[in-house]
């Protein structure tokens, strides 16, 4: 039997407000998600440029070393050093990669900076005389020359480290070996390579100089939405001093 007293009321104002609020929240969430994806795309575009700058940093540092080899090296303490930045533990740290144009010839060089082991990202531009720019994106590139045994601490949103001991602000000096001379009795890496040299009939007097193998990191830093981002690539460079050494 049909109910003759069916209630045919419309929506109340409260119901409309609740429904509207739900719609508003859902719409805001969807648009927010969409904007987040779009911002991610923009960041990726910037990161592609920064990665290319970082790659170029390694390439040009490799050229500095190769050109040094071609020209016979740099005299350091009476010896011919092929990659002068790695000649001494005193030289480890942050460098500014700069172009040097003389006439028609352009070469590059690594200029030392006073940037600390743990470098606040916001301070990076003050240590580089060669800022990078591409369609509004501005960045700073610094080259880190560090001991083979430096702890690899990835850059975070606040700072980047170079030649850090255990992630602290204390520098690493490559197994505590002296800049030249025989291996320290506690320097396992040095002793192992020396033993290897002797096994392969190299001269028994060969020693492993400081900077025999250094890590090169090319770090690009750029501002992004009230924060900073970094892109970095690294490689190992060998260094040789004279004919009876590695």
């Amino acid at each position: 039997m049909l109910n003759k007293h069916i209630r045919c009321a419309g929506f109340t104002l409260l119901e409309v407000l609740v429904a509207g609020s739900v719609l508003f929240v859902v719409t805001t969430a969807v648009v927010g998600l969409s904007n987040s994806i779009i911002r991610g795309t923009s960041t990726n575009a910037d990161k592609t440029i920064a990665n290319r700058w970082a790659s170029e940093g390694l390439e040009l540092t490799n050229k500095i070393r190769n050109d040094s080899v071609k020209s016979g090296g740099t005299a350091v303490n009476g010896e011919s050093v092929w990659f002068a930045q790695a000649a001494s533990v005193d030289k480890y740290g942050w460098y500014d990669l700069a172009a040097n144009k003389v006439g028609a010839v352009t070469t590059w060089q690594l200029n030392p900076t006073s940037a600390p082991v743990q470098l606040p990202l916001a301070d990076a531009p003050s240590y580089s005389a060669t800022p990078l720019e591409s369609q509004g994106l501005q960045a700073t590139r610094l080259i880190c020359v560090e001991a083979y045994g430096a702890v690899d601490v990835s850059s975070d949103s606040a700072s980047a480290s170079c030649n850090s001991r255990d992630g602290t602000s204390s520098p690493v000096n490559d197994g505590d070996r002296v800049p030249s001379g025989d291996c320290s009795s506690t320097d396992t890496y040095c002793l192992l390579i020396k033993a290897s040299l002797n096994r392969n009939h190299s001269t028994a007097s060969a020693y492993i100089p400081s900077g025999n193998m250094v890590k090169i990191r090319s770090v690009v830093i750029w501002p992004d939405h009230n924060s900073f981002r970094t892109a970095e690539l690294s490689t190992l460079f060998g260094n040789w001093q004279d004919s009876n050494q590695l």
């Binding site: 045919c8 109340t12 508003f24 719409t27």
Partner: peptide
């Protein structure tokens, strides 16, 4: 009981809905 919207309720609802739609469609656009 057969009660529909009052004119005032209808006007307020339409205004609110229109406001939300303007904001939402603008954001989507």
């Amino acid at each position: 009981m057969k009660k529909g919207f009052t004119l005032l309720e209808l006007l307020i609802s339409i205004t609110i809905f229109a406001g939300i739609m303007v904001i939402a469609l603008g954001a989507f656009a």
